[in-house]
Write a protein that binds this DNA or RNA. Structure first.
Lengths: 199, 199
DNA sequence: GTCCATACCGTAAATTTATACGGTATCGCG
DNA sequence: CGCGATACCGTATAAATTTACGGTATGGAC
C-alpha cells in the first residue's frame, strides 16, 4: 500500500494480526477498543479511508471486511545490486505461508540462483525461507552481502576471518578479512521450499 | 473428529470452505441458506452439537466461531507396513500449508527416509508434498508401494516393465514386471519442504 | 413400547454491528 | 488567512446476528 498515513498503517497491521489470531476480521467496536477510540465511528472512518485507498474491501455484513493484499511472505527474486533486499522491485510476489511454520520467524522467501549449495540439497530455483537477522552462529547457512552481491553460503569464523563456504566442491570459499571488510549478514536460512512442477 | 454424524461432518466441511474462501466464519443464517434450512435455529443446533463434540468453539459474538482442528495438511511419518498411507496411526501432525500452493492440489506431506533421492535434492528428513493419484507420467517422482513398503522414486516405463529409479548411484532401480506385479502408485511428488532447524 | 439423540420448523427477543449525522481540533498548503 | 484532509467524539438507528422456547418427525437402543 502506498498512500497510507501512519495511523492507517497501524490500523491495517492490527487487522492483519487480528485475522491471523482470531480467524475473523474485527468489528468497529473491537477496533475502537484496541486503539482507545471512544466511538465506533472513528473506526468506521479509518476503514472507509482504507477502502478508498484499496487496502481493504468492505461488504456491509458483520465483520464483512477483507484484506486486499496477499497476507503471505514476500518472494524476493533477482536482487538488484545495491538495492535493499526487500525493495519493492525485488519482490516478485507473495506466498501464502504462515510465518510461524519454522522455529525462527520466517520473514521472506529468497529465490536461489546457481548450484553452489547443491550438496546441502538447495538447488537452483528453490525458495529459501529466510529469517531476517544481522548476526548468525557458526555453521548456519546465511544470506550475506559480499561486494553488493547477495549470496547464500554456510558461515564459519576463525581467527579474524569469516568464511562463506559453498556446499559444492566446484566452488571455493569466500574469505573475508573482518578487520578490512565488514561481513553484512541479511538473514539466516531456516527452510527450503521447492515446487517440483515449477518448470 | 470422531463421533460426528454425516450431517455434522457436512456442516464442518462447509465451515472450513467458507472460512477459506470468505476469510471469516459463516453466520447461522448463511449456514441455513447454504443447507436449505428454513430457520437459523437449525444451524444453531448443529453448531452446538459440533461444539459439544469438540470440533468448534463458539464465543457468542457475531461470526464468533472457531475451528478446533488444524486446517493444514496431514503429516505422514513412518508408514506401517500394509496400512493405508493416511491411516490415523501414520499421521503425526498437521502443517498449516494451503493446498493450493502448487499447481496440483497438495494432499499430504510425507516424511522422506533415507538418501535414495539425494541427487534430486530430496534429503533424509525432508517433507515431500504429495498429490494423491493412482496414475503418473513417465519421469515424475512418485510415491509408490512395493512389497508393502512405501518408497519415493522417479518413474520410468518401458516394454511392459516399470522402473523406480533412485537419484543416487548407490541405489539400483527397482524393476517391476507389470504382467506379474501391479504397480501401486500412491501419489505424485509436487514439492519439497525442509526445516533446516529441525534437528 | 418407551426413551433418547438427531434433524428439522417457526417465532421472537436481546444483543451486536454497521453506519449516518453533526461536532471539534490539528496540520500542511497555496 | 481559508481550505481540505486527517483524526477524533457523541449520539442514534436500522439491520444483522445470536440465541432461547416450543413444536414435529424419525430411527435406533433397551
Amino acid at each position: 500500500m502506498d498512500g497510507l498515513t501512519q495511523r492507517q498503517q497501524e490500523i491495517l497491521d492490527f487487522i492483519r494480526g487480528f485475522v491471523e489470531s482470531e480467524g475473523m476480521p474485527p468489528t468497529r467496536a473491537e477496533l475502537a477498543r484496541a486503539f482507545g477510540f471512544k466511538s465506533p465511528a472513528s473506526a468506521e472512518e479509518h476503514l472507509r479511508a482504507l477502502e478508498k485507498k484499496g487496502a481493504i474491501t468492505l461488504s456491509g455484513m458483520a465483520r464483512g471486511l477483507r484484506l486486499t493484499e496477499p497476507s503471505g511472505l514476500p518472494l524476493v527474486g533477482q536482487v538488484a545490486a545495491g538495492a535493499p533486499l526487500l525493495a519493492a522491485e525485488n519482490v516478485v510476489g507473495h506466498y501464502p505461508v504462515s510465518p510461524n511454520l519454522f522455529k525462527l520467524r520466517a520473514d521472506y522467501l529468497l529465490k536461489v540462483r546457481g548450484w553452489s549449495m547443491r550438496d546441502a540439497g538447495i538447488l537452483d530455483g528453490d525458495w529459501l525461507v529466510v529469517h531476517k537477522a544481522s548476526e548468525a552462529r557458526d555453521g548456519q547457512i546465511v544470506v550475506a552481502r559480499v561486494d553488493d552481491e547477495v549470496t547464500v553460503k554456510r558461515l564459519k569464523r576463525k581467527a579474524g576471518r569469516a568464511y562463506l563456504i559453498a556446499e559444492n566442491p566446484e566452488f571455493s570459499p569466500i574469505v573475508i578479512e573482518l578487520a578490512r571488510t565488514p561481513l553484512v549478514i541479511e538473514g539466516i536460512a531456516i527452510g527450503v521450499v521447492r515446487d517440483l512442477n515449477a518448470i
